[in-house]
Design a protein around this nucleic acid. Structure first.
Lengths: 243, 243
DNA sequence: CTTAACAGGTCAACGGTGTTGTCATAAGGT
DNA sequence: ACCTTATGACAACACCGTTGACCTGTTAAG
């Protein structure tokens, strides 16, 4: 066995599959994404992916060391797509808001990849490009390096964390998702004021608010705090005028 | 088969297992938690849990309809423990900060349950108690119902989302976790300024910041924004003096 | 005190999963 | 034309969650 995965550059022998398909890293990732989109995140398994490709499942291990590796490649491809669709305008706050919402939406569309990419550092091309781009926006806006990294960190973690959270709940079978919303109406909204005064008082708001994502609000909060920090920095730096 | 799970109240026949153990919902949940603590989140499977209990795996289905159900019970137990350990002082901001950190820590200690509980509404006793308690803190501080729910929502989602995110990364095998940190040093910190100027400029900060959790910072941000909102509300309400 | 019902345990099986060791073969370089 | 070897196929392993059928001891009713 030793190492069955060959570095991408060294691949040459394009022997087709029994069913005539010529495999490649790109084709595998694209097919995985298609499977996820068409049949949901749970439809993705090595065996099913093999079947969809017209190849033996074990062939995939010539391209990825294990499932995780494959999912990271899928996640990186998603980052790339999100970044390509994004059109920065030069207004850092609006641009980051837009990017945050896009990342969140992309996570919602691909729950499984979102969960994985939320806590893994891929070190792949698109991820690096995203880091460079976001840091560029922040430094361009005038954040000193240390603050730029802090804001970047909070921004990216929040987008990923809420993305994973919200995507997990939309990935539930439809019946289960409706059942969740029903818990707020049927259980919480009916608790008597005698035993649960605070829930009873706020019941109306709970039923309305809780089944919705709190990400947009949290994002605005973060950007607001960052803007306040930037104003503070600018005020401090004015006298000396150095970066 | 029909319905094999009997509602907790109706249980009476306490026939012991072949190996002499008397099962109960509480014992199962406690054992599951112990397994997670001792051998990591991946050590928890129906079969292993059965083995640890000295019972056939299928016996567990007399108590929980499926694995999810079991994990929700585990999650609810965790909420209960966290809440019991928390000692509110009456200072809403300090109390919520303390509670948020405790929830985050508890998620770190029980990654698998954390992930599940982060996007599911259990409607179980401890969860309800937590909602009532937190809403009580906020309403007691003077937040009107609608704002209390908004702050509650952001607070709880943030704690759960970051908890799930951070716990997922600490649940990685130690080798993988070290590899992640190494990516920042070995890949990002070495990118040439010519192609990646922003990363190169901020490299030192990236290496230091990125492998750490951004939750405490994000939490303070949220509470700061909530405090600002409360001050605003108080200022507006002063003249009429009504709640 | 006997007896009938059934809660709650066991067993065996089904169809799935990721992963690996071994083998065969066709493509490429020489 | 040959040799090497990348790469695909196959079969097997050890797991997983879940279920239907069966059996038995406890319990409540008569």
């Amino acid at each position: 066995m030793s190492e069955r995965v060959v570095p991408p550059g060294a691949r040459r022998r394009r022997r087709p599959t029994k069913q005539g398909v010529v495999l490649s890293e790109e084709l595998i990732v694209a097919t995985a994404l298609r499977l996820i989109e068409e049949h949901g995140a749970d439809a993705l398994s090595v065996r099913r992916l093999g079947r969809a490709l017209g190849a033996d499942p074990s062939s995939l291990y010539r391209y990825f060391r294990h499932t995780d590796d494959l999912m990271l490649a899928v996640a990186d491809e998603l980052i790339g797509r999100t970044l390509r669709a994004w059109r920065p305008t030069g207004d850092w706050r609006a641009d980051l808001r837009d990017l945050g919402l896009r990342m969140h939406a992309s996570a919602l569309a691909h729950p499984r990849a979102a969960v994985l990419s939320s806590y893994r550092v891929t070190g792949r091309v698109h991820e690096i490009q995203a880091v460079e781009t976001i840091l560029g926006v922040l430094r361009g806006a005038g954040f000193p390096d240390a603050d730029a990294v802090r804001v970047y960190h909070a921004f990216i973690d929040q987008a990923l964390a809420f993305g994973a959270l919200d995507s997990a709940s939309t990935a539930l079978p439809k019946a289960a998702r409706e059942a969740e919303a029903a818990v707020w109406r049927a259980t919480y909204a009916r608790l008597p004021a005698a035993t649960h005064p605070h829930i009873a008082a706020a019941a109306r708001h709970l039923v309305h608010d809780m089944p919705r994502s709190s990400y947009p609000g949290a994002l605005d909060l973060l950007l607001g705090a960052a803007a306040a920090r930037l104003a503070e920095i600018r005020a401090t730096v004015r006298p000396g005028q150095a970066s």
